[in-house]
Design a protein around this nucleic acid. Sequence first.
DNA 1: GGCTAATTTGCAAGCGGTGCAGATTAGGTG
DNA 2: CACCTAATCTGCACCGCTTGCAAATTAGCC
Lengths: 162, 162
Amino acid sequence: MLAPAELTRVFRARGLKVTPQRQLLFTLLHDNETHPTVEALFATASKMMPGISLRTVYQTLNDLAAMGELQMVQSAGGSTRFDPNVTEHHHAQCDRCGELHDVYVDDLDRLRVRNLDGFQTERARIVFSGLCAACLSKTTRTQKQSNKRSITKPSSNKGANK
Amino acid sequence: MLAPAELTRVFRARGLKVTPQRQLLFTLLHDNETHPTVEALFATASKMMPGISLRTVYQTLNDLAAMGELQMVQSAGGSTRFDPNVTEHHHAQCDRCGELHDVYVDDLDRLRVRNLDGFQTERARIVFSGLCAACLSKTTRTQKQSNKRSITKPSSNKGANK
DNA sequence: GGCTAATTTGCAAGCGGTGCAGATTAGGTG
DNA sequence: CACCTAATCTGCACCGCTTGCAAATTAGCC
Ligand SMILES: [Mn+2]
Ligand SMILES: [Mn+2]
Ligand SMILES: [Zn+2]
Ligand SMILES: [Zn+2]
C-alpha cells in the first residue's frame, strides 16, 4: 500500500475526498503487518476518533482493496483480513493463536502440479499452517519436543529479512 | 471418506446411530468430487428425502469433518465446501464459474520458503486460481487467445489420472 | 414391545457484511 | 470567505451462512 501522503494525492486525483476517517485508516494500515480484521481496525480507530462508524471502515477498506492497495485474505472460519502488503507473498497461519505471518516463495513455478489439465493458472496462494515460534516456545518449555518433521525445509535465508 | 457401509460400521462402533438421513448423506458424499456446499447437498437430499432438515445436513457434515472423514474448504466469499477426498491434495478454483478441481503436488517439500523463522509447518494448502478448461474454451472461441504464461508448468501427467 | 439416549427438526439468534437514505462535509468556484 | 454540490459518513435494517436450543422423534438395546 502506498504511504498516506501518496494515497492522499491518488485519491484527490481521482476526485475522491480525503476525509479525516480515511486519513486515519491510511496511517493505521501503512506498514501494518498484522493482517488486521475490520473489527480490529475499527477498535483502534475508535480510540483515536470516537464516533467513527464501522460502516466507514468497511467502506474504506473495500475501496482500497478495489484500488489494489490492499489484499483481502480469508482465513478459515473468521472474518476477512486486510493486507497492505500487495507484493507476491504467502502466509503462515498459527493453529494456536491464529496469527498470520508473511512468507516468500521464489520457486513456485518449479512445482510439479498434476491434474491441472487445461486449467490456466493465473495465481497461486499458499497457506502454511502449524505453530508459530512464539506458541511453539510456550509448548516446548513444558513438554518434551516431539520430533515432528517440517514439510518444508527453510532456505538459508541469506538476506531474506530486509 | 470411507464407503457408506464402512461408515455405518464406524458409527455404530462409536455408539452413534445410523439414521436414514445420515445414510443418504453418506451416499451423496461418497466419491463426490464436486466439493458441494451444504445448500447443494440439502437440495439434492431434499429431492430424495423430502422433509430432511437443513440443520441435520449441517450437523452431519460437521460431525463427519470432526471425524476426519471430510475436509472443509473455504472458498472466498461463499459458503464452506465439503470434500470427501481427505488425501493430501490442493485445489484449482476457476475465477469465472467458481468450481474447485483437485490437483496433486508431489514436490511441495522442495519449495524454498523465506521468512518462516521458527514456524513449525504441519500442512500447506495451495489454491491455484485462473480459468478452468471449460470457461477457457468458451472465451477463446470468440476472442483471440492472449499469450499469458501459466505460472506453473504442468508435469507430464503420466498416470496422473487413476 | 418398551426404554432411553441419540438424533432430528424448526425456529430463534449470532456473526460478518452490505443496501439504503438522510445528515454531513471536502473541496472547488466566484 | 461564503456558497454549492457531489462525495462521504452514519445508523439502521437486512441478508446469507451458521449455530444454539428445546421439544418431538427414533435407532438400537433389553
Ligand atoms: Mn501478508
Ligand atoms: Mn478436493
Ligand atoms: Zn501462535
Ligand atoms: Zn470455470
